[in-house]
Design a protein around this nucleic acid. Sequence first.
DNA 1: ACCTGAACACCGTTCAAGT
DNA 2: ACCTGAACACCGTTCAAGT
Lengths: 187, 187
Amino acid sequence: MSTSPETPYHHGDLRRALLEEALLILDRDGEAGLQLRDLARAVNVSPAAPYRHFDSRAALLEALAVTGFQRFTKAMEAVALESTGPGLRLAMGRAYVHFALEHPGLFRLMFSSQLRRDNRPGLRMAADAAFQTLRHVTGSDTRSERIAALAAWTQVHGLAVLLLDGQIAARAGEDSDALITAILDRL
Amino acid sequence: MSTSPETPYHHGDLRRALLEEALLILDRDGEAGLQLRDLARAVNVSPAAPYRHFDSRAALLEALAVTGFQRFTKAMEAVALESTGPGLRLAMGRAYVHFALEHPGLFRLMFSSQLRRDNRPGLRMAADAAFQTLRHVTGSDTRSERIAALAAWTQVHGLAVLLLDGQIAARAGEDSDALITAILDRL
DNA sequence: ACCTGAACACCGTTCAAGT
DNA sequence: ACCTGAACACCGTTCAAGT
């Protein structure tokens, strides 16, 4: 699948290749399954090669989480443009949940408290930008607006997480998207 | 802190000691920080000793998650006994969130999809028993009852997770428990 | 400038051997 | 019956050396 002819010998766009392959592994095997040596092997470089592009495994994970928040922001903004008025909040909730289901490993990584502990500024900024998009919709000036916004967020996020963990699932013959909509409609 | 006089030489209640120490490490360093060799060191046994009591690290994690669900069930049942009628749902929501905040590593482990993948029957049973306690309160006979129950669950769980991840926090001078109550009261 | 090869400390796990 | 000591394969990371 490489763009260069035959095998990409000694060089190439390794940084991008690493990130792309890492995203695949992340959503397939989860964060614990993403091993630097495996990743290097998958891209046909030596175990030490990734260190020319990332300081450490944690730095790689941060880069992944940042791109995750960027994609998430784009997805939310797209909904904000095509949907309007009353249906907007529900549409964004559904998009939020769908993003999580489509990128399970990435979504979990974005909210991983492990990453938050190292307190990397790039991640904080990407996350803030994403949440800013959400606040646009709900407003957060008065206290009651803020509480309502947080209540909506906890609902949507909880649904995403419980679906991801397999704790909530549609029953046999039940439409999974209809279930999501029904739950989000309760607030 | 051992109950036997001086150093507990060759034996003792190792299984219990491992579980107790593991719970401490889990809530302090998270799942990734719980290493078998560290754990053995902390309890003063050789790296191989834990394998007389647990088949693998995954088996140890499962045992921890099972005791987590048991404690969780007990906490929920205690609330169901002391609270009654209208305030019960809110009281259980608060207890749910407080449990998560008091046992962050354990709570995350209980809902870890990593563990769910190996599909260990003991864990499934402990989890089902816990959720059974919750259903008692909400009911889940009709479809609308089921949706309402799921909506409440997603709200409470989402709040717990976002607080745990530091994404939601009380502002300076704001009472954190009041914030929790205000959000849970919206549904 | 970017990558390889070999090495280091460390981890989960196994197994023969000790008490 | 329960634990130790030594070993194995593997991982993240470093560093001198190659192109």
